[in-house]
Design a binder for these strands. Structure first.
Lengths: 149, 149
DNA sequence: TGAAAACCAACTATTTTAGTAGGGATTGTA
DNA sequence: TACAATCCCTACTAAAATAGTTGGTTTTCA
């Protein structure tokens, strides 16, 4: 039940973009450096995010990436689903696919998987990038200094 | 975020044992047949369940497996954790291990993983095998016949 | 014009998954 | 007592997924 690095790195990258929202394009190298992620690998992840409309890019020198929307309008759920596919503990409850098994009418484990799926979705759809930025500022205030100087 | 077949098959097997609770040992072959699982593979999974005290075994002819406790005293959470390890979307929030990362004080993605972990645990710890048996009987009643004849 | 950056496709090492193979040990029943 | 049914155990393995790496091309600002 672990997320792959796709979802984990992807969320970190998006959070980093949220921290710098409104300040123009951020080059991938900066994101990779601050989050300690292989730049070239992150490139693949952010390409997926871009193709799914969650980030915009600016090419050429002084280019980079930025969120396509305000941080309070992008949820963790959107990011994770784009990178990992539908969140489901079993294929039979993956809502984007039609992988129904032939025993689903009698299957009670399916009910369990549905409950798990729904509870995860509820959590990740309720957290926005803005929430994470707020958490981050709170964490830093508690430690006696501000992130933005 | 998918469970492996360990957790999925394991829960199916435990459910099967719950259906026959109190009727003496059930041979692995029966479980494997009714749930369409490779018998030899299931053997490995049930060995884990036995070593962790969730099932008892009876060796020799007419032997088999049975739940170590009443179905309402075994949760889905116990079964899944034994077979899959600690439920955590990221190692940094796996409660059985000490895989804390050095950035955890500043890390806001960790907060997200904790919320996901907690919500999954809440769901799986609240469902017992007896709940699944009840669901199963309800499903079969709705279809106009009883499971036990 | 050159450096900084995004963009793209293919390759690869490692790990995990989902089993299989091949036996040994125990025990109820004929 | 033989034997079939059953649990028990270790090791091996094919296939898939993961987590990158390699080696470029294209665009654009200064």
């Amino acid at each position: 039940m672990k997320l792959s690095t796709k979802g984990r790195y992807g969320l970190k990258a998006m959070f980093e973009l949220a921290l710098h929202y409104g300040k123009g394009p951020i080059p991938l190298k900066n994101i990779a450096d601050s989050q300690r992620i292989s730049e070239h690998y992150l490139e693949q992840l952010i390409a997926t995010l871009r193709k799914n409309g969650l980030v915009n890019s600016v090419r050429g020198a002084q280019g980079g990436y930025m969120l396509s929307e305000k941080p309070d309008n992008i949820t963790v759920g959107q990011i994770i689903r784009v990178l990992e596919g539908s969140i489901a503990p079993s294929d039979c409850v993956a809502d984007d696919e039609d992988l129904t098994c032939n025993r689903e009418k009698q299957c009670v484990t399916k009910i369990v998987w549905e409950k798990i799926r729904d509870s995860i979705n509820e959590v990740i759809d309720s957290i926005t990038l803005q929430d994470m930025v707020d958490d981050h500022e709170r964490l830093n205030n508690d430690r006696g200094y501000m992130y933005y100087i």
